[in-house]
């Protein structure tokens, strides 16, 4: 055996797995999708559970992006330990809204405040929502939470400025004032609709350190998400309920 063949060529991981190209590709595909009429887009998310390291940076980034108060979380990461010692491992399951094709939550709303948009995003009209919390009970994924009007600094001498910052969900300004929407409303993940409209990927996708979350237009057969949805590793949560989620997991 020659010396030459024995030498291992080391390429940096970032070159071997071009992560930056993935995000640029998703970004490009997002802009392409935004050029189409709303009804022709079909947003989907794919989460690679093997790449997820459970850092919860998506949860935190989402909290910051949408100025979420206590009691409200759009994308918790569920941890699970499995196997028996010494063969033990952990896996992580980030859980955004599934944006079901057949959502059980929108059906029950007594005022049609929550509905499915033509592009597949399930949204809540804060100005219409009466806060009955029926949709919270109806969602099989626990993906809806309620804004109790509380602050992280409740019970401390100072209410920090960051808690009073308005949220810009749905492209509107929502100042945080007593008994004013979204306070006393149900809130949920909306795939960062306000960011999509500005041509930017959802916050959880951008911030993911392992590039474990993918986002795109599943009606575009050339898109990255379409490619991944075709994978043999793909699964969805509670398929037996017929909700037909638009969030896919790679296991």
């Amino acid at each position: 055996m020659s010396k030459d063949t024995q030498r291992v060529k080391i390429t940096p991981l970032s070159v071997k797995i071009p992560q930056d190209q993935l995000i640029l590709r998703m970004q490009r595909e997002l802009q392409k999708a935004m050029e189409k009429p709303v009804a022709q887009r079909r947003w989907a998310m794919v989460i690679d559970t093997r790449k997820c390291v459970g850092c919860s940076s998506c949860t935190v980034a989402c909290k910051a992006e949408n100025k979420l108060p206590p009691g409200v979380v759009y994308r918790p990461v569920i941890e699970e330990e499995y196997g028996t010692f010494p063969h033990v491992a952990r896996r992580f399951l980030p859980r955004p809204c599934m944006h079901c094709t057949n959502p059980p939550c929108t059906k029950v709303c007594p005022v049609a405040a929550t509905y499915k948009r033509d592009d597949g995003i399930v949204v809540i009209d804060y100005d219409k929502c009466i806060g009955c919390r029926y949709c919270i009970a109806a969602c099989p994924y626990g993906a809806r939470t309620f804004d109790w009007g509380e602050y992280y600094t409740d019970g401390t001498p100072v209410r920090e400025q960051y808690e009073l910052e308005p949220s810009f969900e749905y492209g509107e300004k929502w100042p945080r004032q007593k008994n004013r929407s979204p306070i006393n409303n149900t809130r949920k993940c909306h795939f960062c609709l306000h960011r999509l409209n500005a041509g930017i990927l959802p916050m959880c996708v951008t911030t993911c350190i392992g590039r474990a979350t993918y986002f795109g237009d599943s009606s575009d057969t050339q898109s990255l998400v379409s490619e991944l949805i075709g994978s043999a590793r793909v699964m969805r949560l509670k398929e037996e309920l017929g909700t037909n989620p638009n969030v896919y997991y790679l296991v």
């Binding site: 918790p76 941890e79 859980r95 994924y141 949560l237």
Partner: peptide
């Protein structure tokens, strides 16, 4: 919990 472990996730 609607999904096992959701109560401990956050």
């Amino acid at each position: 919990p609607k999904i096992s472990g959701l109560d401990k996730a956050y």
